[in-house]
Design a protein around this nucleic acid. Structure first.
Length: 229
DNA sequence: ATGACGATTTACT
DNA sequence: GTAAATCGTCATA
C-alpha cells in the first residue's frame, strides 16, 4: 500500500569516507545534505545545509588551527574526519564545524546555514521566537523582540546551533556514530555546481589576505543563507 | 593574574 | 549605518 506517508528506506548517514577529504571539496559536497539532531526528548530536528565555509588549517590565518595552534578549545579539529567541532564565541554563541581531512590535520567545514525541514516548532522555541512556558498564541506578557520569519531560524552559524540545541556537549562527538547528531546523504546526491555561489568568508576580516579567498559556498537560490543579499 | 578578543546576533539611531 | 551583549580562551607577565 503506497500512500504519501509510506516509509522510505532510511536515508544513509554520511560515513568516514565522506568526510575524509579536503575542506574545500567537503564544503561543496555538504551543500544539499541534511543535518539531523535528536534531542534528549527523542524529538528529531533537521535541516538541509545551504551554506558552508572551508577552513584550511595551519596556513589559513582565519582558522583556529592557524600556525599549528593546538589548544583544549580546538583539539577536536585534530580528530578523525567526521568529528564535530563545536566552539563557543562572543560570550554567547556556539558554532558547529565538521572536521575533515586526516587525523592530526586540523581542517574543517563551518556549517553556516540550513533550510529547516523537521521540527520547526521546536526550533522556534529554542530560538526564542515564542515565549517559554506556553503554546503559540497564548498571551504571557513576555516580550518577543526578535523577528520570527522562518528564514531567520537557521540562517547563520550561531542561529542554527541555537535552533538545533547544539552546544559544547556535542563538541568532539563522532558524527558517523553518535545518536544525537549526524549528517544524512541527500537522495538527490550532490548539488550541481550551477546552483552554487562561491564568495569570500564572513567575519574573518582580521585574517589579512586570507579574508578575501573564496572559501564560502551557498545555494544561490536559497532564502535561508546568512547575511544580506 | 590580567587583558584583549572573537569563524555572531540583535537592537537601535 | 553603529554599538551592545557577554564570557571562555589564550598569550603575556
Amino acid at each position: 500500500m503506497a500512500d504519501s506517508a509510506a516509509p522510505q528506506s532510511p536515508a544513509p548517514r554520511c560515513g568516514r569516507g565522506f568526510f575524509a577529504r579536503g575542506s574545500e571539496e567537503l564544503a561543496q559536497k555538504l551543500l544539499g545534505q541534511r543535518l539531523v539532531r535528536v534531542l534528549e526528548t527523542g524529538e528529531r530536528l533537521a535541516g538541509t545545509i545551504v551554506e558552508t565555509e572551508a577552513y584550511l588549517g595551519h596556513e589559513d590565518r582565519a582558522a583556529h588551527s592557524f600556525g599549528g595552534r593546538r589548544t583544549p578549545r580546538n583539539e577536536s579539529m585534530y580528530g578523525p574526519p567526521g568529528t564535530a567541532y563545536v566552539y563557543f564565541t562572543y560570550g554567547m554563541h556556539f558554532c558547529f564545524n565538521v572536521v575533515c581531512g586526516r587525523v592530526d590535520e586540523p581542517v574543517a567545514v563551518l556549517i553556516r546555514a540550513l533550510e529547516p525541514t523537521e521540527g520547526l516548532a521546536t526550533m522556534r522555541r529554542l530560538r526564542g521566537f515564542e515565549p517559554a512556558g506556553g503554546p503559540p498564541g497564548v498571551k504571557t506578557g513576555v516580550k518577543m523582540g526578535k523577528a520570527r520569519a522562518d528564514t531567520l531560524l537557521c540562517s547563520g552559524p550561531a542561529r542554527l546551533c541555537q535552533a538545533l540545541g547544539i552546544d559544547r556537549r556535542l563538541n568532539g562527538i563522532d558524527l558517523t556514530a553518535d545518536t544525537r547528531l549526524w549528517i544524512e546523504q541527500a537522495r538527490r546526491g550532490t548539488v550541481p555546481e550551477a546552483l552554487i555561489t562561491r564568495t569570500a568568508r564572513i567575519g574573518v576580516d582580521y585574517a589579512a589576505e586570507w579574508a578575501a579567498k573564496p572559501l564560502r559556498w551557498y545555494l544561490t537560490r536559497s532564502a535561508h543563507v546568512s547575511g544580506r543579499r
